[in-house]
Design a protein around this nucleic acid. Structure first.
Lengths: 349, 349
DNA sequence: CTGTTAGCGCCTTCAG
DNA sequence: CTGAAGGCGCTAACAG
């Protein structure tokens, strides 16, 4: 009669959804026992548990998230806050988070915050505060004081990826070091005239990812006794990188190398360079940051930051904190690695 | 005293979260009135409503999703089921969904289903059935009978994007027509020797997106009296398109044009063609499908299917159905448009 | 080990 | 228009 596991997914399509008391009745026990058997919390005899589990399975019972959440205070869901969904870095990190969360039976609730202030405020003041989530992961979100306080007020673990915030548990690569590494790579190959494509020097006092990468560039340049060339601002898209490169390459004092703060900008720069008949790396070296899959097709040298792994680690950190682990406030160290694919070489002149 | 809107986001960080009865007490009314005032359902005098609203705002009250959901049966969240998060089409559609949903105050719960059967089953049998969502949107998910039944059993609106399922409300471009359009474009330019890169002819009896595109290709070829060349199977990635093109171009009977069933494959094909010293479109015409942003950088001619718009429309359709609109079972028509960017031209020989 | 009994926080008839 | 009260479905003490 009981077809055990085989019956999963094949439920009689009864009118109403089966509830915990349907299971209790069918198994001849109380709802409390069903709850204990299913959750694994609290003592239940093996025989009873097996019977309850089989019954629940047969009936296709699934706990109501709302009811369970209301009773326990746990939602079995993690909120993820992102500024963009359709850019490589974010969707890749998200994929990593999703992997790790699904493994643990958690759902993921997505909060995409635009730059639009009113909408952004709604996300922080309303959506995130509905107590629908047990933890929050932010990806490269720069929080103002209010937003930061609002998040903290949630009273749940918060893990920030790629957005160094001294007040939050932060998981991020050392972007200053990344900026240095990429710059040193170019200097070692003999470049003296390097332009950085990324954050405007005037923006962000210094803690944002783009600003850190730029500072790594400037510091390394200075340490090598080279004068820092003006930084060419761009928005981290292929398009932005392309436009920035166009401006830079049009000038009379053409650099021998470009250091783009993201692979997408680096790719844009390569495309523009090619359009102008410049060979990479013979006439122009280009290095990026990210480890974007596309880089491979352009032979792009880059500093890989293992985006997918960042997502997985953030999810694990969030769940660990939920399980009582002490929040590692301050900066967590994430790995990065230079991948030389050939778009950098000594300057020809 | 009451700083009105200015106070939003600045809440006294009291020990416990403020609940509906805190608001009721502070406003000098009953919880029922607060509920009515905030939800807009049920009669409340203007004065009372304003006072309640101001109080709620001042206290930073936000309804508990769990409690509200338990009482109303509505979760104010929509589930989105995707096979991949880190591929252009999916993340772009997702961005569109997110836009539309946030506008209506809905949260989005993400269900990323891998190919791994056990995990996939858990998503359909457990996660999706926790009654956490008011509607489901699937993106290019091919459902087997059980999964389809499981979804239907949820008793919520279901909108399928890019996965024509006669049993579900489906929003998809007419992929057969898209396949025909792209093929006709090549034939009109004089191509007689065209290879299709996409779904293997042997796979999928015919209703999947890749299969429909291939059939559009074959039908149009046949209608023009051309013999259908073997289709070159590939997995819709740049890498797959590149490999497929490599196999095709290595043969002795080199085609004059390639029709790739996705822009990513088309780009892979272009990259490979270039590597082999072939000029596009002089030596080889290439056309793709999607409207991928990257296509612009390769001068790729494509059939744009407006992915972001698809997401928005799916979200709107789902919400409309929630509001009582009749589910438009069968196939909804979504726009598509040929964008000629120059990667197709008459064959040189 | 198991059953009974309060709620979790909000919504919604039903009276007033 | 407003308040009182039961209940949404489940869990967590507390008894037994």
């Amino acid at each position: 009669m009981d077809r055990g596991g085989l019956s999963r997914g094949i439920h009689r399509s009864s009118e109403t959804v089966v509830g915990i008391d349907d299971v209790a009745r069918a198994a001849g026990v109380s709802t409390a026992t069903v709850s204990r058997a299913l959750s694994g919390r609290g003592p239940v005899s093996t025989t009873t548990r097996d019977r309850v589990l089989a019954t629940a399975d047969r009936l296709g019972y699934v706990v109501s998230a709302a009811a369970s959440s209301l009773a326990t205070g746990r939602a079995r869901a993690v909120g993820v806050v992102v500024p963009f969904l359709d850019r490589w870095f974010f969707s890749t990190v998200l994929a990593g988070i999703s992997d790790a969360l699904v493994r643990q039976g958690y759902d993921i609730t997505l909060y995409s915050v635009s730059a639009e202030p009113a909408e952004r405020r709604r996300v922080f003041d309303d959506h995130l505060r509905r107590r629908r989530i047990d933890a929050v992961i932010t990806i490269a979100i720069e929080l103002d004081a209010e937003e930061s306080a609002s998040l903290r007020g949630l009273g749940v673990p918060i893990v920030a990826i790629a957005g160094p915030n001294p007040l939050l548990t932060t998981l991020t690569v050392d972007d200053l070091a990344v900026g240095r590494l990429a710059t040193a790579h170019l200097i070692e190959r003999g470049h003296r005239n390097i332009v950085h494509i990324g954050a405007d020097a005037s923006s962000n006092a210094g803690s944002s990812v783009p600003a850190l990468r730029r500072r790594g560039f400037e510091e390394t340049l200075a340490a090598a006794g080279l004068s820092a060339r003006a930084v060419e601002p761009a928005d981290f898209t292929i398009e932005g990188g392309s436009a920035a490169a166009a401006r830079v390459l049009a000038g009379d004092d053409r650099p021998t190398a470009l250091f783009a703060a993201s692979d997408e900008m680096a790719i844009g720069a390569i495309l523009t360079a090619r359009e102008r008949g410049l060979r990479v790396p013979e006439d122009l070296s280009v290095i990026g940051i990210d480890g974007h899959e596309l880089g491979r097709w352009f032979g792009l040298t880059t500093v890989d930051q293992f985006a997918r792994g960042q997502g997985e680690r953030a999810a694990e950190a969030a769940l660990a904190e939920l399980d009582g682990a002490t929040p590692a406030h301050g900066r967590g160290t994430l790995p990065f690695e230079l991948v030389d694919r050939g778009s950098t070489a000594p300057p020809a002149f």
